[in-house]
Lab assay of single mutants.
Amino acid sequence: MSIQHFRVALIPFFAAFCLPVFAHPETLVKVKDAEDQLGARVGYIELDLNSGKILESFRPEERFPMMSTFKVLLCGAVLSRVDAGQEQLGRRIHYSQNDLVEYSPVTEKHLTDGMTVRELCSAAITMSDNTAANLLLTTIGGPKELTAFLHNMGDHVTRLDRWEPELNEAIPNDERDTTMPAAMATTLRKLLTGELLTLASRQQLIDWMEADKVAGPLLRSALPAGWFIADKSGAGERGSRGIIAALGPDGKPSRIVVIYTTGSQATMDERNRQIAEIGASLIKHW
């Protein structure tokens, strides 16, 4: 067993022997301040990774656009098919120029040779490549099948209805392509620590998230040296922004954090800054 596999296998073990965790309302004060600064709703939840206990939450059962955070769930569904012998990570998928959609920095470079399922998941999570996500959605049967996968996990809230990039439209009061912070946090925890996926697939999923290259201005910008984070960000229309993450000190994750916002007129930089400040408060009061 590799060191990384050992780390993920012992996530519940280490967490069980940690000192009790206590909620700190100071972080919620910052979440509410972010709402004021952005002029928009902000949803927040913080779960203990081992027990699933909610440590703090704000608007945990209000719907927010998922945006690209759905790509972690998508690759979880792909990995479940791999575990069941219905898919192979090494299978190569070929596609054409007509398949390319807006923001496809990886797939646009491989029109000639195609990409493997493993490479597509890596591109979808680490670079948020939209064509990679659409190609992977095709392998599982489309958005409705991802929703069905989530329902089978016990998540009857999260739903995907459309493809990239239309799913980022974020129309107010439109339930399409949305989740709730509580539902997303619980589902992410199941994917990373539950028995739904094999140990190898859980490790692969967290490795992809740990290698995320496009979430630097968010929670990662607030992390002290030595902290662990595996995350996936999302951005959408109407001032929408979000991030889902597993993080913790001492090089291992111990909490799940989900943050979503929508309806702001603020710039992307300002949305990023507010999420980073929430992260800084979380870490300060850990």
Rank of each mutant, 00 (worst) to 15 (best):
H24A: 09
P25D: 05
P25G: 11
P25M: 14
E26R: 12
E26Q: 15
E26K: 10
T27I: 13
T27P: 14
L28V: 06
L28R: 08
V29M: 12
V29H: 13
K30P: 03
K30T: 06
K30C: 07
V31D: 00
V31R: 01
K32Q: 14
K32L: 06
A34Y: 06
E35A: 12
D36H: 09
D36S: 14
Q37F: 05
L38S: 09
L38M: 06
G39H: 06
A40H: 05
A40P: 03
A40I: 04
A40M: 04
R41W: 03
R41L: 12
R41C: 10
R41I: 12
G43S: 07
G43T: 02
G43F: 00
Y44A: 03
Y44R: 00
Y44E: 02
E46A: 08
E46M: 10
L47M: 11
L47D: 02
D48T: 03
D48M: 04
S51Q: 09
G52D: 14
G52L: 09
K53L: 12
K53G: 14
I54T: 12
I54M: 15
E56G: 04
S57K: 10
F58N: 11
F58H: 03
P60C: 09
E61D: 13
E61L: 08
R63A: 06
R63F: 06
F64L: 02
F64K: 01
F64V: 09
F64S: 00
P65K: 13
M66R: 00
M67V: 14
M67F: 14
K71L: 00
V72I: 04
L73E: 03
L73K: 01
C75Y: 00
C75M: 08
G76M: 05
G76F: 07
A77G: 05
A77E: 10
A77V: 07
V78Q: 04
V78A: 08
V78F: 05
L79G: 02
L79P: 00
S80T: 09
R81I: 07
R81C: 05
V82T: 12
V82P: 01
A84F: 14
A84Q: 15
G85H: 07
G85Q: 12
G85T: 09
Q86N: 15
E87Y: 09
E87I: 09
E87T: 14
L89H: 07
G90M: 06
R91M: 05
R92C: 15
R92Q: 12
I93L: 10
I93C: 15
I93H: 05
H94T: 05
Y95V: 04
S96W: 08
Q97N: 09
Q97I: 04
D99Y: 09
D99V: 06
D99N: 04
D99K: 05
L100P: 03
L100W: 08
L100A: 10
E102N: 08
Y103N: 07
P105T: 14
P105R: 06
P105A: 05
P105M: 07
V106P: 02
E108S: 14
E108Q: 09
K109V: 11
L111I: 12
D113H: 04
G114F: 12
G114W: 06
M115V: 04
T116H: 12
T116F: 08
V117E: 03
E119A: 14
E119K: 14
E119D: 15
L120E: 02
L120M: 09
C121R: 01
C121A: 05
C121F: 01
C121W: 00
C121S: 03
C121Y: 01
S122E: 05
S122W: 07
A123Q: 04
A123T: 11
A124T: 11
A124D: 01
I125L: 07
I125Q: 02
M127P: 02
M127D: 13
S128G: 03
D129P: 01
D129W: 00
D129A: 00
N130P: 01
A132M: 00
A133P: 03
N134K: 05
N134Y: 13
N134M: 04
L135A: 11
L135P: 01
L136W: 00
L137A: 08
T139I: 10
I140F: 14
G141T: 10
G141D: 04
G142E: 05
G142V: 02
P143G: 07
P143H: 05
K144H: 14
K144Y: 05
E145A: 05
L146G: 05
L146K: 00
L146Q: 03
T147I: 07
T147P: 05
A148W: 08
F149G: 13
F149A: 11
H151W: 06
H151K: 04
M153L: 04
H156I: 09
V157K: 06
T158F: 03
T158D: 00
L160R: 01
D161A: 06
D161I: 09
W163D: 10
E164Y: 03
E166T: 11
E166C: 13
E166Y: 13
E166I: 14
N168A: 04
A170K: 15
P172N: 13
D174Y: 03
E175V: 07
R176G: 05
R176Q: 04
R176L: 07
R176M: 05
D177E: 02
T178G: 03
T178E: 02
T179D: 00
T179V: 03
M180L: 12
A183F: 14
A183K: 13
A183M: 06
M184R: 00
M184S: 03
A185K: 01
T186H: 12
T187W: 14
L188R: 00
L188E: 02
R189N: 14
R189G: 12
K190S: 09
L191E: 03
L192T: 15
L192Y: 14
L192M: 15
T193C: 14
T193W: 10
E195H: 14
E195R: 10
E195T: 13
T198M: 10
T198C: 12
L199V: 04
A200H: 06
A200Y: 07
A200M: 08
S201P: 11
S201V: 14
R202S: 10
R202L: 05
L205N: 01
L205F: 04
I206N: 05
I206P: 00
D207F: 06
D207E: 07
M209K: 01
M209P: 00
A211P: 13
A211W: 15
A211D: 15
K213C: 04
V214S: 15
L218D: 04
L218P: 08
L219H: 06
L219F: 12
R220H: 13
R220A: 06
S221A: 11
A222Q: 08
A222K: 14
A222S: 09
A222E: 10
A222C: 10
L223I: 15
P224A: 06
P224N: 15
A225I: 08
A225Y: 15
G226N: 06
G226Y: 06
I229D: 01
A230M: 04
D231N: 08
D231E: 10
K232G: 01
S233D: 00
S233A: 06
G236S: 08
E237L: 13
R238E: 06
G239N: 07
G239C: 07
R241C: 15
G242E: 00
I243N: 03
I244M: 07
I244Y: 02
A245D: 01
A246H: 11
A246C: 09
L247A: 11
G248L: 00
G248R: 02
P249R: 11
P249M: 07
P249Q: 11
D250H: 04
G251F: 06
G251N: 15
P253L: 04
P253C: 04
S254D: 11
R255T: 06
V257E: 03
V258N: 02
V258D: 02
I259D: 00
I259Y: 07
Y260T: 04
Y260D: 01
Y260K: 00
Y260N: 02
T262G: 06
G263K: 12
G263W: 06
T267N: 09
T267M: 11
M268Q: 11
D269T: 13
D269S: 14
N272E: 10
N272V: 07
I275W: 03
A276R: 09
E277Y: 13
I278G: 01
G279A: 08
G279F: 10
A280Q: 04
A280T: 15
S281F: 14
L282H: 03
L282N: 11
K284H: 15
K284Y: 13
H285Q: 15
W286Q: 03
W286P: 03
